[in-house]
Amino acid sequence: MTSKIKPAKGHPYARILGVGGYRPTRVVPNEEILKHIDSSDEWIRSRSGIATRHWAGPEETVAAMSVEAGGKAIADAGITPDQIGAVIVSTVSHFKQTPAIATEIAHRLGTGKPAAFDISAGCAGFGYGLTLAKGLIVEGSAEYVLVLGVERLSDLTDLTDRATAFLFGDGAGAVVVGPAKEPGIGPTVWGSEGDKSNTIMQTESWEVFKDAQDRNEVRYPAITQEGQAVFRWAVYEMAKVAQQALDQAGVQAEDLDVFIPHQANMRIIDSMIKTLKLPEHVTVARDVESTGNTSAASIPLAMERLLATGQAKSGDTALVIGFGAGLVYAATVVTLP
């Protein structure tokens, strides 16, 4: 017989309650990149807006950076680690797939026994994680959710590729999402375009090492991309997605305080602003200049810096959009913690 199943008791709404970031101690200027490629500081800055990035040392593992960022986010939210009911980690640069790194991070943070799992959604990972977190809270599976974006993209950088050697950085960004009386996270406009999977990708599968007769002849995998195709898609297609996120949240561009796009490239950010016709009063995250592209970590890292420097304040309305390898994307409107 079909028994009546009692549903979980959720909360009407969710919002971001706290944010935290970790940037590796070693700052790498363009001059250091130029040891490996025939380029110039001026060229790198004009094509990407990047001046420096942080690269992790041996001790700054995916887990270690996550524990730092996660701990700060939990403290910023004003809760204790044991209140966290789920830990979601988005990363493409943790190379030991089993077990999920989220479990170790949860344990080291002292969170007790939360649900903990990793997701792979490239540079849209933060938005994917945020959407899952909101769902868990509203549905009643968790009270507080820690969402982490963390990358060591220096491990997946081909230092001899003049198109990407300067692009990537390392770091971790985290938010705590929890229940709210008013909606603090709008509807998510998200999706994937698998027909463009070759536009941004890892050059080789790890299987090349398994199959290789001589490991010295195998090229270590790196992330590669088709710059012009990515630029066109990011600027023009993602501007439409960002507009849809505003429309679905019922927020006019005039009412927006902050725009936090994935920190891929300053040129993409500048062109997106133009295409979206964002009003001048909107504060725009430009963390890419000193952090490089940190994929899933870029939005929470930029959010943390905007709040820490006073460029944005708690309660501000922000449009966030992530986009990248897949191709995948996720955009939504949030109230800043």
Binding site: S46, R47, G227, Q228, F231, R232, V235, Y236, S271
Partner: peptide, 11 residues
């Protein structure tokens, strides 16, 4: 006109 501006010209 660099490669990224070229994309803007094309669009």
């Amino acid at each position: 006109v660099d490669s990224l501006s070229m994309v803007e010209v094309v669009v």
